[in-house]
């Protein structure tokens, strides 16, 4: 099993990571799609040994721990947010809200930011 550069770019988009292609200039911190493709293929080559395992007898995969999920203790309080508000850690915050660049909801909304 090997993976193509196009596939790597699709996966990167899915994971919200930026990679640069052959035709783009390298930028600091931006991994190269070509190199990632090579690396992933080397790893996948190793992982391919899994195909040799006989899993025919395995029904449900194991779960650790084997007990069912416990229910919350009725008295459990929410853990503290120390200094109080999520505002302290928010990169952008206004009037009690986290802010991000405007997300367009509809096709004919204006493109965000441009």
């Amino acid at each position: 099993m090997s993976v193509s550069r196009e596939e790597v770019e699709r996966i990167a988009a899915l994971a919200r990571l930026d990679v640069f292609g052959e035709d783009e200039p390298a930028a600091e911190g931006r991994p190269s799609a070509v190199r990632l493709t090579e690396e992933l293929n080397r790893i996948l080559e190793h992982i391919a040994t899994l195909e040799e395992a006989d899993i025919s007898e395995i029904g449900d995969p194991i779960r650790l721990p084997s007990d069912p999920v416990p229910f919350r203790d009725p008295g459990l309080e929410p853990d503290s947010l120390a200094e109080g508000a999520p505002a302290d850690r928010a990169p952008r915050w206004r009037d009690g809200f986290f802010l991000v660049p405007r997300l367009p909801a509809l096709v004919d909304d204006e493109e965000d930011g441009s």
Binding site: L17, D18, G29, R30, R89, A90, P91, R92, L103, S114
Partner: peptide, 21 residues
């Protein structure tokens, strides 16, 4: 909500990709 952010990003998609990369 917290942590490093690419503050120049003009769209949320760009914000995600740049901050994470």
């Amino acid at each position: 909500r917290y942590g490093g952010r690419a503050s120049e990003a003009r769209s949320t998609l760009e914000l995600y990709r740049a901050s994470r990369t």
